[in-house]
Amino acid sequence: MSDDFRPIKFLPPEPDQALRAAFLGTTYGPVWHRFRLGTELQSRPEEEHVEESGPDWAVGVRSWVIITAWNPRGQPQAEWDNAEAHQRLLARVSRAGLVPILALNGNGQWRETALILPGASLRDGIRLGREFAQAAVLYGIGRRGALVWLSIDRRKVDRGGVERRHGERCRVERYWVQDVDAANEQR
């Protein structure tokens, strides 16, 4: 069969541009080390291999994931519902043997309690993100970060969030972790 007649593999649609702008315009991480996603590598003169050294909370781990259980599908929920979802996420992460670090995603009305999962794999992030109906998760290795957009059609996902052979795929956008001066961050 010629290439002209081969079926095209499904790629998820572009994310909603307002939601994408919100993800790219916000800050992430624990209160002592906030960062943004950027397209340029931030230089740190004291470090010889800046691209390899990650945030201080990621030193000594291969990879990391940042996830929240708040506001599934990007839809605001009551504070009680978000707190309950966060407790379920904590329990799920604990059962998976991961040791989380408490973090905050966002600013202002969109500030959400989140978890940093040092040592988590991309597959861990995708499973948890889908399980908690998140639009995206952050996955990183060192100072390299990826915004991983998730599909939420649970009919095409096996138990545990693993994609079926013909299920939907993730869309990945690659960025750099850019430190934010905590004193100048908008609250």
Rank of each mutant, 00 (worst) to 15 (best):
S2Y: 01
S2C: 09
F5K: 14
R6I: 04
P12K: 08
P12D: 10
P13N: 12
E14S: 14
E14R: 14
E14K: 14
P15G: 03
D16N: 13
A18T: 12
L19K: 04
R20A: 13
A21M: 11
A21Y: 05
F23T: 01
T26W: 02
Y28L: 03
P30D: 02
P30T: 02
W32G: 03
H33W: 12
R34G: 13
R34A: 10
F35S: 04
G38Q: 12
T39G: 08
T39K: 12
L41T: 05
L41C: 10
Q42I: 06
R44C: 06
R44I: 09
R44P: 00
P45A: 12
E48G: 08
E52K: 14
S53D: 02
P55G: 07
P55D: 07
W57T: 00
A58K: 01
V59R: 15
V59I: 15
G60E: 11
G60Y: 13
V61E: 12
R62E: 15
R62A: 14
S63D: 15
W64A: 10
I66Q: 11
I66P: 03
I67S: 01
T68V: 03
T68Y: 05
T68N: 04
T68M: 01
P76T: 06
P76Y: 04
Q77K: 06
Q77E: 11
W80M: 14
N82W: 05
E84P: 00
E84Y: 00
E84D: 07
A85Y: 00
A85P: 00
Q87A: 14
Q87P: 00
Q87D: 12
R88T: 00
L89F: 03
L90N: 06
A91C: 01
R92E: 09
V93A: 04
S94I: 03
R95N: 05
R95Y: 02
A96W: 03
G97E: 07
G97V: 06
L98F: 05
V99T: 14
V99A: 11
I101G: 00
L102Y: 04
L102H: 02
N105M: 13
G106A: 10
N107E: 10
W110V: 06
W110Y: 12
W110Q: 15
A114H: 08
S121P: 04
S121D: 11
S121H: 08
L122V: 07
L122R: 12
R123L: 15
D124Y: 04
D124P: 02
G125I: 04
I126V: 15
L128V: 05
G129V: 06
R130W: 02
R130V: 04
Q134H: 04
A135I: 01
A136I: 01
Y139W: 15
G140I: 08
R143S: 13
R143A: 15
R143G: 10
G145R: 03
L150M: 00
L150W: 02
S151Y: 02
K156P: 01
V157I: 14
V157D: 03
V157C: 06
D158L: 14
R159C: 05
G161Y: 02
E163A: 15
E163K: 07
R165I: 06
R165H: 09
R165C: 00
H166V: 10
H166K: 10
G167V: 04
E168Y: 06
E168A: 08
R169H: 11
R169E: 12
R171P: 03
V172Y: 10
E173Y: 05
E173I: 07
R174G: 07
R174H: 13
V177F: 15
V180K: 05
D181G: 09
A182H: 10
A183I: 10
N184F: 11
E185H: 11
